[in-house]
């Protein structure tokens, strides 16, 4: 088990390393060479002089050869900004002030802030949205999927199929706009847009702002999960060991829950882990539709303003989340299926 975990973590670290290289090449040399966008010019503000640009280059270390820049970048990602870099970028300021300006993911061009602090400010929104909507879609889809697998071709199963079709074919922003118009604007059930921080004393403002976007997002995923749960469950229910359980005299709910569900969950867990990892990198359409200031919205802003470090930082951050999600998925699968532990 420990071996398995170590191997997966080392493998994940390697994947992240490859991603950093890809991100560096894409947002560094490729961008500069292809589009004549020099990061230094962008950082230097409006209509900079040649001297300004040179200064910025030195400041950011862009005058160094690429491999040195990459090595510095990697070092910063792992260990945090070096003292030397702190002295260069924010001379004379306190450590806290400097942290606001310089972080592991670098500094934003558009705002005088570190990418880390930007992500840290936005991530709670995205995280809340992902968790609430994941809870909703799992709670909707797994029971529906299981029930329609137990009674295939029944009325309920057919209704579930219609639900799947609607959920999969309507884009989230469309459902989102309809929901805002009817539920928030006409009926006033939910706030129109925005986000409130989570407070343990009164979580309602937080939840009321999140509920509608999470619900809309969950609807699209639930449709997919109903389909997968149904087909997995149908397959599992026709397995020989399920027949054995029935031959033992186990009741139908017991057969479904104790014998079939765990086997059917394996592929669903795998998919869920990946989807959640993906969502934690930001749900752009939902965030924009509902005016949520999450990572997705940040990515859109950054891209529009050619804020290279922020965009790169978000890409890298999402990649790390997805790799982490993968490892968690593997662990959960191993705990569900003893045959995986052997590996």
């Amino acid at each position: 088990m420990i071996r398995f975990l170590i191997r997966r973590i080392l493998g994940g670290a390697f994947v992240v390393l490859v991603v950093t290289l890809a991100v560096f090449v894409l947002f560094g040399p490729v961008l500069t060479w292809k589009s004549n966008i020099t990061p230094a010019r962008l950082y230097a503000g409006k209509s900079p002089t040649a001297k300004d640009i040179e200064q910025v280059k030195t400041l950011l270390g862009l005058d160094q050869p690429y491999y040195v820049q990459y090595a510095y970048g990697l070092r910063r990602l792992v260990l945090g900004p070096s003292q030397d870099e702190r002295d260069r970028v924010c001379p004379g300021s306190t450590a806290e002030e400097c942290d606001q300006l310089l972080g592991r993911f670098g500094s934003s061009f558009a705002k005088q802030r570190s990418v880390d602090s930007l992500i840290a400010a936005r991530f709670p929104v995205t995280l809340s949205l992902a968790i609430v909507s994941a809870l909703i879609w799992l709670l909707i889809s797994i029971p529906i999927g299981v029930l329609s697998a137990i009674r295939p071709r029944s009325l309920g199963d057919r209704m579930a199929t219609v639900f799947v079709l609607i959920g999969q074919s309507l884009p989230v922003y469309y459902i989102g706009l309809l929901a805002i118009y009817f539920l928030s604007y006409r009926l006033g059930l939910f706030p129109l847009s925005g986000y409130e921080s989570f407070a343990i004393t009164n979580p309602w403002p937080w939840l009321s702002h999140l509920l509608l976007p999470a619900l809309v997002l969950a609807l699209a995923f639930a449709a997919l999960y109903v389909r997968i749960t149904r087909s997995q469950m149908l397959d599992t229910l026709s397995e020989d060991y399920v027949r054995t359980a029935r031959a033992k005299g186990a009741s139908e709910p017991r057969v479904v829950v104790r014998h079939a569900l765990r086997n059917a969950m394996l592929p669903i867990v795998t998919m869920f882990g990946l989807d959640l990892g993906l969502l934690l990198g930001g749900a752009i359409l939902i965030e924009v539709t509902f005016g949520l200031q999450g990572l997705g919205a940040l990515a859109v802003e950054a891209a529009k303003r050619l804020d290279v470090p922020t965009t790169a930082g978000i890409v890298l951050f999402s990649a790390i989340l997805i790799v982490a999600a993968n490892i968690v998925v593997d662990l959960v699968c191993a705990s569900l299926d003893p045959r995986i532990r052997l590996e």
Binding site: E239, Y241, T244, P338
Partner: peptide, 21 residues
Amino acid sequence: ALRGSEVAMIFQDPMTCLNPV
């Protein structure tokens, strides 16, 4: 109530008849 107590069954393929998890 009868299945597994009064009437029991053994199946063909022992590889697939026991729950793997």
